[in-house]
Write a protein that binds this DNA or RNA. Structure first.
Lengths: 221, 221
DNA sequence: CGTGATCAACTGATGCATCAGTATGTCCAT
DNA sequence: ATGGACATACTGATGCATCAGTTGATCACG
């Protein structure tokens, strides 16, 4: 990504990504390039760049000479993204143990407190943002922000599943419990405990799909 | 990546990537778009696509309105790629343990035998290809070829360091020894042993840079 | 009615001229 | 000698017309 070339393109990508993962633009929906050009005030080449970028994230499907659509949710891709996320969370947590992590552990504790005040189904967006912050802090602590951004760039399928699950069930207290276990193991400086807690959390975080697919079969590949 | 659009683009990317990682195109070298267009027989837009792709892999640096150069070797990026690789190798190895891995373990054993016949400094390209195969087999076994391709797409800096190290020292017997330990732990079905062997291998594989940088300081960021 | 062929409208990809920014060389002042 | 200003050549980005392929509607035939 190249800021001088891509400033406007990135804004378009961010906006469309949010609308796709927020299910404002639904799976299978056709995207009209002329309409997008007009909406975002850019011409064909930068819009093409933006759509190719989104295609790389698995969020849109460009059919040459034909049309561009919001991609259907691909469970295999979601699974791969989940494996990647788990692998990196495990590795980063071990690196945090070897790092000067005092300030990070403090910041993570503050996140836990804020999360504790948001338990329940009502403030899920805020809780979700804190969830992200809890994990991002670890990546930042060990200088791996770019790897975090990479996992996020591949999380479109997962994020859409999460979005569809939002109203279906409340798992905030379970997430908080897992986060607390991770934090405690990091504070204790226990490599095996950290590995176990992270793996446990990321394994439990695999989102259920069956019921969602029954309600919206056309959303899935 | 979109085959119908990108068939020719991918060929260009593959060729240039090989030349960059093989140090035929050296760090800092200016790439002339008109010359590349003529060489590969394509016009500005697909060549632009190819160069943007290579930029995404960290292999070229596109300076808007100015010029495009082969990227300097970035040690931080190399380190991140190495962390990613280690994390995924660890995760994939654990997945292999849970999989029906008989044929894969057999194929890996065959690779070990071929590697044993290539010890020493003379057939490093062939040894390297087998090294890749040894790891790729595990990813394929658990359906994670795409994640393997992702690690490779981020290995440009590492691969160039390896290339520069090729003539400097012979580590083939050490690599083979590590591979044998990984294979043995997989055969034994020992999760902890697998984790230890993979981590050991990937930690030992971090390539030395100091002497290379002294010989070719202009190659490094 | 079902199937296949044809055609026109539509879409994304490409080619290329123009635009926007960069880099270098030259000249001048200190 | 050094630094700044300026002009010019060069580069990559963009805009837009054209090209290449897709899709859906219509028609003909069995």
């Amino acid at each position: 990504m190249n800021d001088k070339r891509d400033g406007k393109v990135e804004q378009v990508v961010d906006t469309l990504r949010a609308e796709i993962t927020g299910l404002v633009l639904v799976p299978g929906q056709v995207l009209s390039r002329p309409a997008l050009q007009e909406r975002f005030g850019l011409s064909s080449t930068p819009l093409r760049d933006a759509l190719i970028r989104l295609e790389g994230e698995g969020l849109v499907e460009i059919r040459p000479q034909s049309r561009t659509t919001v991609s259907l949710i691909d469970l295999e891709a979601a699974h791969r993204a989940h494996i990647l996320r788990r692998a990196l969370d495990m590795e980063v947590a071990q690196l945090v143990l070897s790092a000067d992590a005092g300030p990070t552990l403090d910041a993570m504790a503050a996140v836990l407190e804020r999360q504790a005040q948001l338990l329940g189904p009502d403030d899920r967006d805020a809780f979700d943002a804190l969830d992200t912050e809890f994990h991002l802090l670890q990546y930042l602590c060990v200088g791996m922000e770019e790897l975090w951004r990479m996992t996020q760039a591949r999380s479109g399928h997962i994020n859409r599943i999460r979005r569809m699950n939002l109203a279906a069930r409340d798992n905030t207290s379970r997430i908080l419990e897992d986060h607390r276990a991770i934090h405690a193991a990091l504070v204790a400086g226990d490599p095996a405990g950290v590995a176990q807690a992270v793996r446990h959390h990321l394994t439990r975080s695999a989102n259920t799909v069956g019921p969602l697919r029954e309600v919206n079969p056309s959303f899935f590949r």
